Simulated scan of single mutants.
Amino acid sequence: MSSSEMNSTMEPPTNSTEEQEIIYCDEDPVLRLYFVTVGTTIATFGCACNLLLLFVFLTKNRHQWSTYLIFLAILDFLLCFLYVTSFGLESAAKYFRIHFLYDLIRLTTTYQFTLSKVVQVCIPYVLIAISAERLAWIGKIIRMRNRGSHRGSLLVCVCIAVLWTALRAPGFHAIDIYVYENGECDYFESMPIVSTNLTANPQYIQYDLLINFFHLFVSFCVLFILNLLIVHRLRLSHQNARRNSSCPNVVLSATKQMVLNEEKKEHKRLRCAIKTTAVVISTYLACNSIHFALYMMEMFSSHILKSEDGGFNMFYVITSDVGTILFVLCSTIRLFIYYKYNPDVKSALKTIPFLPCFAGQVNRPKTSAYECTMPLQTDKESPSSV
């Protein structure tokens, strides 16, 4: 859920005796029900996909997989799960008029919203950690099979989770649930989400703007630059392989054939890295672009998002729903990105007997997921790619 997903968030109703109290019932337009239904379907499928990834990472050659990939699958699962519980179950409770479910969702709304913010901001920084690790390995700065490599990546994951949980914690106090108890609204519209006085504090506004700047802009720039450096280093490696293949000192046919084979492998590694970079960057940009645009409008031109009654207009509600669905979709398709560009995941999925869609003869590709980021060297140390 993005920060713009507080579609129904209103200023708390005034209780002043000098002016009439404004009633904001928690009404959802019918069109939004369709968007939530689509999003819930995608999120449910995403939960299954990421549980499948976790099954592969934790049971199929456990030490082969990077700790970052496992942590990323957990975050993707949580994001999809929180969408189902926050939006899907809430809509189901309203539509089927299930009192206890509606009460339960509203009781945990602030916790779910805060956790979703933490999960969202952790995902790009885990991708940054994966890219930085791969770049360092390509540059021969680290060796992935060294003792303590998993321990170090686990420490990084813990630091990311703890840091962004602490930085996002103040947002827990920025929203609350307002309860109408006098029958002004239908029971399933009587607990709207409202913003607290904290959101009007200038210091909190500046703090929230800074956090979102690092979340949306800085993380994307760093991820983009790191992946450009990876492609650049692989391109240099490819050029070196071509020069070696044309070197006049290479006179033995067997040696020359081996160098030519290395050149072909370098070309495959470069192409694999470019495709992986394009997919990672494009999906991340797509899911953040709407979020970033809406957040800027919230901060600097909020009047164009408001309707005459003081609530958010239909444009804002629908656009924020689309932005959130893109986030969920990005986490859902991660399995298929791995299946397409990571041959090790593809091979592991084909060995699972209860997955007929992935079943088939396991033929290990000539260029493995490791080789997609592997410079010319004789050892077999290699990280799992994104």
Rank of each mutant, 00 (worst) to 15 (best):
M191I: 03
Q206M: 02
Y178I: 04
L79Y: 03
D379C: 09
I141R: 06
V280L: 10
E371V: 07
I70Q: 11
I225H: 01
A166C: 09
Q377L: 10
N240C: 06
L69S: 09
K94L: 06
A161Y: 08
F220L: 11
L326R: 04
S331W: 04
V279T: 08
F55D: 05
R62K: 15
P365W: 04
L52P: 04
L229V: 00
L226N: 05
F300Y: 15
Q206G: 02
M296G: 15
A174W: 03
L252N: 15
A136Q: 07
N261T: 07
E189D: 12
R168K: 10
T40R: 06
Y295I: 06
L226E: 05
L51T: 00
S307G: 11
F57P: 01
K117T: 13
V126K: 06
R145Q: 14
S307M: 07
T277L: 00
N182F: 07
S282E: 03
I304E: 12
E90G: 07
F55H: 09
N212Y: 10
I175N: 06
R151H: 07
G39P: 02
A93T: 01
F327R: 15
T319Y: 09
V222R: 05
A132N: 10
I352A: 01
C330P: 09
C287M: 14
C49K: 05
W65A: 06
T37E: 04
R134M: 02
K268W: 07
K264Q: 10
H267G: 13
R145S: 14
A278R: 09
T109S: 13
I281N: 12
Y68L: 11
L270T: 02
F77T: 00
L52I: 02
S301Q: 12
A293G: 08
T17A: 13
L209P: 00
C122I: 08
V231S: 02
L154W: 14
R32V: 14
T41G: 15
K265E: 14
H267N: 13
M6V: 08
L349W: 02
I274A: 09
V84C: 12
E21Y: 01
P353K: 08
C287L: 12
T373E: 03
K340M: 14
Y295T: 08
K60E: 14
N146W: 13
S195M: 04
F188R: 00
S368T: 15
R364C: 02
G152L: 15
A169H: 07
K265N: 11
D309L: 03
S16L: 06
I22A: 11
R269K: 12
H215W: 14
G148K: 02
V231Y: 03
V280S: 11
P353W: 09
L335S: 03
G183Q: 12
N342I: 09
G311N: 11
L33C: 11
I130H: 05
M297F: 14
F300R: 13
E5F: 14
T9A: 15
Y284W: 07
A132D: 03
Y204G: 10
T324R: 11
S86Y: 05
P124Q: 01
L210S: 07
L329P: 00
K346C: 10
L69I: 02
